[in-house]
C-alpha cells in the first residue's frame, strides 16, 4: 500500500532523511519511534508531501506521489493526517471543522457534510460539543475533533505525528482509544508515538529511526523485548 524507496530529504545543507526504504501493507499499523531530531516527523510529512522529497520515491496505492506530475491534492484526500498540536481551525466550530473539507473538496452539500460530520463527532464521543469553538475544548477533545476531521475525507491511510504528546496525561487515554478503534477496523496507519503500551497493543510493526534512517524494524515484541541494534537499546533504556 505504501512503498518508500531510498527517500532522502535535505533542509539546506542538513540531510534529515538519509535513504529511508520501507513497505507498509494494507491494514498494517506501523509505530515509529526514535530520538528527537531523528527525522520522524519529516518522514511522515513526506508521506503526504507536506515536505517534498529531495530524492527517492514514494508510491501510495500505485501512485508515485514523488512524481511532480501527480495531483497531490487527490493523494491527500486518501491520506489523513493528525498533528501534534491539533491545528483545528479556530474560527470554526467543531462541526464546521469536520464538515469543511467534504463540502469544499468533495463538493458535498452542507446538509450532507454536516450529517457526516455529526456522525464522526459521535464516533469520537463529541456530538455534544459539535457547536463549540476549539478554544472551548480540552486538548484531548480538540485532538479527537482533529481525528474526526481527517476521517471526514474517508482516507485509506492515516498518519499520526505524536498525537498525544501535547496532551495532559489524563487526556492521553481518550485519544489513544479512538486511534485503537481505527486500528481494529483495519485502517492502515503510521503513528509516531512513544506510548509503548499503545505500540504493543495495536502496532503490527515498530520502526526505530535514528539520524535519518530506519535503523531497526520488527514486531513490538522484537523491538521492545529484544532489540538488536545498540542504538535502539540505548534509546529504549532512556524512555522505558
Amino acid at each position: 500500500m505504501i512503498t518508500v524507496n531510498n527517500l532522502t530529504k535535505n533542509f539546506g545543507s542538513l540531510q534529515v532523511l538519509r535513504g529511508v526504504s520501507c513497505q507498509i501493507a494494507p491494514k498494517e499499523v506501523v509505530v515509529v519511534i526514535g530520538p528527537s531530531g531523528s527525522g520522524k516527523s519529516t518522514f511522515l510529512r513526506c508521506l503526504n508531501q507536506l515536505e517534498t522529497a529531495t530524492s527517492g520515491e514514494i508510491i501510495i496505492n500505485g501512485t508515485k506521489i514523488t512524481d511532480p506530475k501527480t495531483n497531490i491534492n487527490l493523494v491527500r484526500q486518501e491520506v489523513g493526517m493528525v498533528f501534534q498540536r491539533f491545528n483545528l481551525f479556530p474560527h470554526m466550530t467543531a462541526l464546521e471543522n469536520v464538515a469543511l473539507a467534504p463540502m469544499k473538496v468533495r463538493k458535498q452539500t452542507r446538509a450532507e457534510a454536516e450529517e457526516l460530520a455529526m456522525s464522526l463527532l459521535k464516533r469520537v464521543g463529541l456530538q455534544d460539543k459539535a457547536h463549540q469553538y476549539p478554544e472551548k475544548l480540552s486538548g484531548g477533545q480538540q485532538q479527537r475533533v482533529a481525528i474526526a476531521r481527517a476521517l471526514a475525507m474517508r482516507p485509506k491511510i492515516m498518519l499520526f505525528d505524536e498525537p498525544t504528546s501535547a496532551l495532559d496525561p489524563e487526556m492521553v487515554g481518550e485519544v489513544l482509544e479512538v486511534i485503537k478503534s481505527l486500528a481494529f477496523e483495519g485502517m492502515t496507519m503510521v503513528v509516531v508515538s512513544h506510548e509503548m503500551g499503545f505500540a504493543r497493543e495495536v502496532g503490527d510493526r515498530v520502526f526505530f529511526m535514528d539520524e535519518g534512517l530506519i535503523l531497526e524494524e520488527g514486531t513490538p515484541e522484537e523491538i521492545f523485548n529484544n532489540p538488536q541494534n545498540p542504538r535502539t537499546k540505548a534509546f529504549l533504556s532512556k524512555i522505558l
Binding site: L50, Q77, M81, F89, H91, K104, R149, A150
Partner: peptide, 26 residues
C-alpha cells in the same frame, strides 16, 4: 500559524481553497 495551512492542505484542499476558507478569515 503555518499549521493552519498544512492542516487544510492535508485534507486535500488546494492552496487557494486553504487561503480562502482557513487562512484569510483569520
Amino acid at each position: 500559524h503555518k499549521g493552519q495551512m498544512e492542516a487544510a492542505r492535508s485534507l486535500g484542499m488546494t492552496y487557494p481553497q486553504a487561503m480562502r476558507y482557513v487562512v484569510l478569515p483569520q
